[in-house]
């Protein structure tokens, strides 16, 4: 155990933790997006699918616990890195030339990550708790989303956070490959492009839901 502990507390071990947990979180987002896009299939289609997931509840619960642990470990290690790195570099230069040598996505990982964490707590509290414990016998899961995003504040909040999720993943995807030790003159530029495409698909995909429901709340045709 001592050996393992030493590894995970080393600077490179922490990179590995961020990379592996991060890849699992991206995978989760892909599945989450597929489920979300079913909302576009209309109330019946969506409610049926939620009910289908409900029928394998024990499996879902186990997955939720694993996901929560992964997410917490990712957040914990990220914040620990941020704190340690702040101590390693406490004084800033008189002229800020960061934009000359790095991307805004890479420099704002802690900020976007923290915003995503805050969002997730609110998101779980509003949607997840409602779905799991607050349906009061109703099975119209579609209606919950519809009412939620009729509120412009919720719609705007979700929309903005989805942009930040895109920022976060744009850096994260290629960064995880680098951390895992795979960097290649020819392939790494392609990996970077794939990461950007995934980031855009996830951000646009998720953001389309609040936009769509906010639009139909004005009587627009769904």
């Amino acid at each position: 155990m001592n050996r393992l502990n030493q590894f995970f507390n080393s600077s490179i071990g922490k990179k590995l933790v961020m990379a592996i947990t991060g890849i699992f979180l991206i995978l989760f987002l892909v599945f989450h997006l597929i489920n979300n896009l079913m909302l576009f299939g209309g109330p019946e289609f969506f409610n049926e699918n939620v009910a289908r997931l409900d029928s394998i509840k024990p499996l879902i619960r186990v997955m939720e616990i694993i996901l929560a642990l992964i997410f917490i470990y990712h957040t914990y290690t990220g914040l620990k890195l941020w704190w340690e790195n702040k101590k390693a570099n406490p004084e800033k230069y008189a002229v800020n030339a960061n934009k000359e040598n790095s991307t805004i996505y890479s420099r704002t990982m802690t900020i976007t990550g923290s915003l995503i964490f805050i969002f997730l707590v609110i998101h779980l509290y509003t949607i997840w708790v409602k779905y799991n414990f607050g349906m009061e016998g109703s099975e119209d899961y579609f209606e919950v989303i519809k009412i939620h995003f009729a509120n412009p504040i919720w719609a705007a909040f979700y929309f903005i956070i989805m942009i930040f999720i895109g920022f976060h993943i744009n850096h994260a995807f290629q960064s995880s490959f680098q951390s895992l030790g795979w960097s290649h003159k020819k392939y790494t530029p392609i990996v970077k492009k794939i990461g950007t495409v995934i980031a855009i698909i996830l951000a646009v995909g998720f953001a389309s839901i609040p936009v769509y429901f906010f639009y139909i709340s004005f009587g627009g045709q769904g």
């Binding site: 922490k14 790195n85 390693a88 991307t103 680098q178 030790g181 960097s183």
Partner: peptide
């Protein structure tokens, strides 16, 4: 500190050392 892959080091290195070397170090360390 720990590396967060901003690659600012590569951009500022007077000898143009590539971050490929960081990936190799990570790999060797595992």
């Amino acid at each position: 500190g720990s590396c967060t892959n901003t690659y600012a080091c590569e951009a500022e290195c007077p000898k143009g050392i590539s971050v490929l070397n960081i990936a190799r170090m990570n790999r060797d360390y595992f």
